[in-house]
Design a protein around this nucleic acid. Structure first.
Lengths: 213, 213
DNA sequence: ACGTGTGAACCGATTCACAGCA
DNA sequence: TGCTGTGAATCGGTTCACACGT
């Protein structure tokens, strides 16, 4: 019986973000046949302090043994339960240009049981093309296709100038979370969660730091 | 003579990151022939408060007119000066797989005067291939090529298992800032700045929020 | 002794509240 | 009056210091 594990009911944003990193680290340890790990040991790979790690976990429960550490297998299961990676989550991809096609082939999503299962484009040249196991569909059918499958998550890789309009259409189609690659701030209802992947600005930030150090 | 504009000498990390967003917003306004803008107006597009905007700018100087707002043109110039986007910054790309090739063609970098000017791969099938204006070079020559050109910034798109080793080689080649697309925490000297673009974990974070709201 | 779990202190960043200038 | 610029208050998140279990 999957009892709710959440102990505290306010969980810092950042803590949630780090859980996926912990899961990754733990899986690597498991692969190396390591059964038990202390917060010290695990945070040598991740660049996070051991206190941070312990505190983060403490929001969800007590998973370690004092004087010993954490059972790798058990902790993996707990984090998977928290993140809900036990069920496959279906994702729609919109815009099958260079970047979109690359994401279609990106193996990293499976790590968290995330799967792009439909892709849309409006270019005649792309519609019907197979990209790995996925056939690009006409974006005319996007709304109905997303609604029918009940997909709630989208990856948006359309050119800048279409991003706002298409994101609005996605919301009307039932999408509740968008990973946005267009360098623009999407203005959408607050109930919709958007995460921006802004490569140019990221790089600029890096260079700014570099220039001041 | 470009006098230093920095007023305060501690500038929050986050402030620096936002400057590029402001620059973008201002350029859009300029394109729409808008000459003057208040902090209120500009922050309707970006999702940032007007106080945040003013405070951020205040670290660098006083660019606005009370009762009026900011001259769009002037502010663009000031931010460009701060970010150093007036000079072209050369970038090396490592790993010309699907994602790497997509980034080679990504037009968004030019926005900040960033340009991928060399690309490397170790696959025979890719070496010598033209990707837009860039010819993929053999990664054997990477170190000397980067050193010779004095490139300080790299985009890393190699498969997970090579990422750590290659990043170390990049550092030995003189690279000081890395935009890393591999889902791993690179362990490098502190003087090297790394920014991770972790699409799967980003998406997972989004879904976690969704599941709790 | 060792390593977890956690209230309290701290720190960076955001927001408030308002003074100052056009 | 309108909007900027900024010290002071506040907030979210991290780190400290240590109690507790094994």
């Amino acid at each position: 019986m999957t009892k709710s594990i959440i102990k505290s009911n306010y969980i810092p944003q950042e803590t949630a973000r780090r859980l996926s990193l912990y899961l990754r680290g733990l899986r690597n340890l498991k692969q190396d046949k390591i059964l038990t790990v202390s917060s010290q040991q695990i945070t040598r790979f991740l660049n996070i302090t051991s206190v941070q790690f312990r505190k983060d976990l403490s929001y969800f429960g007590e998973f370690g043994k004092r004087g010993v550490g954490y059972d790798v297998e058990v902790l993996i299961n707990e984090i998977e339960k928290i993140l809900g990676t036990n069920v496959l989550r279906e994702i729609a991809l919109v815009g099958a240009g260079k970047l979109g096609s690359a994401l279609l082939a990106y193996p990293g999503f499976l790590e968290f049981n995330l799967k792009i299962c439909v892709a849309f484009d409006n270019a005649k040249t792309k519609i019907g093309k197979l990209c790995g196991p996925i056939k690009i569909e006409d974006s005319k059918n996007m709304r109905s296709a997303i609604k029918k499958r009940g997909i709630k998550i989208a990856v948006l890789c359309v050119p800048l100038e279409y991003a706002q309009k298409i994101s609005e259409l996605l919301v009307r189609s039932g999408i509740r979370a968008i990973l946005n690659f267009a360098p623009i701030n999407l203005v959408l209802p607050k109930r919709v969660f958007v995460s921006n992947v802004d490569m140019a600005s990221e790089l600029e930030g890096l260079i700014y730091k570099l220039s001041r150090k």
